[in-house]
């Protein structure tokens, strides 16, 4: 059937992610989901802003005591670059170059894992050095919930991309999996969008008090 048809770079359609009705539906539905996610993260940001530095006593660390620019800068660079590499992957997807797409997705995953490693180190650092815990103050709860939700999205996005890469490794591109790759990359970009606001609102604005 149409979705499993084999292609050549010449016959591969211009927008493979929307070449079938199923693809069109997924594409639209996923954008709507991202619209909902926008509200979800906005709610988490709102809570964080309302509870920022809201701690039971002065012995608890506040935002300006905790954050360090170099680590956050490194994490930002990792995630921004991974956004570019997933754009490269989609570029090759549109040109029907499966091998190159997989390679760039692999680099995306590697960068994502590095980001995750930094985040785990960071949380661990706050927890042990500053006693800044999820259960120690409202500020801690709000911080870990916001940044942790983002981290959870990173984990989910990585698992998604890895699953797609393994599942389709032997099969190559067709109109059935092209929308899936495309959506996974949209999701990955959205994670980056959220991170842009996290490093701005949480870290940079947190540093200046």
């Amino acid at each position: 059937m149409a979705a499993e048809q084999k292609f050549t770079p010449q016959t591969w359609p211009e927008s493979p992610e929307q070449a079938t009705l199923e693809g069109k539906n997924k594409f639209l539905g996923f954008w709507f989901f991202l619209g909902g996610e926008t509200v979800l993260f906005a709610s988490l940001f709102a809570t964080y802003l309302a509870l920022k530095d809201s701690v039971p006593s002065d012995t608890h660390a506040k935002a300006a005591d905790l954050f360090e620019l170099p680590l956050v800068f490194l994490m930002t660079m990792l995630l921004l670059t991974s956004s570019l590499t997933s754009v490269f992957a989609m570029y090759h997807m549109k040109n029907y170059n499966f091998k190159k797409m997989q390679q760039w997705l692999f680099i995306t995953v590697a960068l994502g894992l590095a980001f995750l490693g930094c985040e785990i180190y960071e949380f661990n650092h706050y927890y042990h050095e500053y006693e800044h815990k999820f259960t120690s103050s409202a500020f801690g709860s709000a911080f870990y919930t916001l940044v942790g939700f983002h981290g959870g999205h990173v984990v989910f996005g990585l698992s998604w991309i890895i699953a797609l890469m393994i599942r389709n490794a032997k099969r190559g591109l067709d109109l059935y999996n092209a929308p899936k790759f495309y959506l996974a990359s949209l999701y990955w970009h959205f994670i980056d969008v959220v991170w842009v606001f996290i490093f701005t609102v949480v870290y940079l604005m947190g540093m200046v008090g």
Binding site: W31, F32, L34, G35, G36, E37, T38, V39, F41, A42, S43, F45, A46, L49
Partner: peptide, 13 residues
């Protein structure tokens, strides 16, 4: 729908 989401999110913040 993205802009509607942004609007609702902005009001919340």
């Amino acid at each position: 729908f993205m802009y509607s989401g942004v609007l609702v999110g902005f009001l919340t913040v």
